[in-house]
Design a protein around this nucleic acid. Structure first.
Lengths: 209, 209
DNA sequence: TGACAATGAATGAACGTTCATTCATTGTGG
DNA sequence: CCACAATGAATGAACGTTCATTCATTGTCA
């Protein structure tokens, strides 16, 4: 091949996936037609089939991309200076980067798909286990968690944290459309902080909180 | 048909909704055809249209039914003798009554549908607000929560509890099929108890937990 | 350099299938 | 016999996928 070589093919794939994310979030996997995606991407239907075997493959690729994005979030959380800051990053990952309700709706759909597509389920499980392991380690090493963890082990704490994060993400899809990304972010932060204070705040401070 | 005749109309509706729940949980709203539902119910396609205007109406009726089921769960939770028991009821509602992963998958799908169908979103919001109000009141009146609430208000505690419950429900759809309803129930209970001990256990006991 | 051959990205009409919905027909209890 | 429950073949729209075709770009040889 003799194009501006290295990024032309990946660009097309990426362009298609970008369009697919918008469509999937707006209409869901199975209500999105290949025509919807091609229109959103500004290309023809046929071209999608040059880069993806079929619609399933587009969904799988989206799930893969989600995996990569989650591990980036995890990296950022690992490099935060405090445990609270890590939690804040984990809880707001989905309402700052892109336009607002897109990501949440996509992730809820992904779980919904996972419940009946074993391949997607494996992938989501894998993402979750990696992220859980990362956060468990984060907690093990955090000085804040040493003497204030309410008698729970790091892994138990991580499980609670992820449950709350998933639950808040689910709530996010119910938010009225008027709510801005910033307002949403603020709500997520509130809950993250409350959870932090429940799990990690020194007991001495609890009475005045 | 050979049933008691007087309630034949409600029976048919109910029969159709029962079948729809099974299909929706197995395949999702939009991958379930009207033929799937009619086959599961053991009736003809056309008959569904005698009792429901269209497929959307079936989905709406399912959401309505979900609303009623949630308020029953809430009633049971209200009549529990301890706050911990209430939490246990709220957390295991979906893995005891019917065969296991059916309800969880349906609820995740319901949220997914809510993200793009304002009518469903309103209904789910309404369910959630009612339930939140109920649990908030529950906490306000519970003696356990009087001096041990980690500085959080009843409504803030309720929000955390519901986030965890939703998050665990989401996790439930990832469980491998081999896992039995009892095992699932046990996992949910563990988390409910951990959350309870974080939020409500007297601080004096925390060190030894 | 210029003429021509080869490439393969891109198109979109067409195909076979599936689906929600309709309705003419049949069965049934009173 | 009538009113109504129930059927399922028929309909047409929408879908995922295919493929013959176009055409800008690149490679080649005189």
């Amino acid at each position: 091949m003799s194009q501006p070589p290295t990024d032309s093919v990946p660009d097309r794939r990426c362009q298609i996936l970008d369009a697919a994310l918008v469509c999937f979030a707006k209409r869901g996997f199975h209500q999105t037609s290949m025509h919807d995606i091609s229109a959103e991407a500004g290309i023809s239907v046929g071209l999608i089939y040059r880069y993806f075997e079929n619609k399933e493959a587009v969904i799988s690729a989206m799930a893969d991309r989600h995996k990569r994005e989650i591990s980036e979030v995890l990296q950022r959380a690992k490099h935060a200076r405090t445990l609270l800051e890590s939690l804040e990053i984990l809880f707001t990952a989905h309402c700052c980067e892109e336009e607002s309700p897109v990501v949440s709706a996509f992730v809820v759909d992904l779980y919904s798909e996972a419940s009946r597509n074993p391949q997607v389920a494996d992938l989501v499980r894998d993402v979750l286990e990696t992220a859980m392991a990362g956060v468990t380690e984060l907690i093990s090493k955090a000085p804040e968690a040493q003497n204030t963890a309410r008698g729970l082990s790091p892994i138990e704490l991580a499980e609670l944290i992820f449950a709350v994060a998933r639950g808040m993400l689910m709530l996010d899809v119910l938010r009225p459309v008027e709510m801005t990304a910033t307002e949403r972010r603020e709500r997520q932060l509130q809950v993250a902080r409350r959870l932090w204070s429940c799990l990690f705040k020194p007991e001495a401070e609890l009475a005045y909180a």
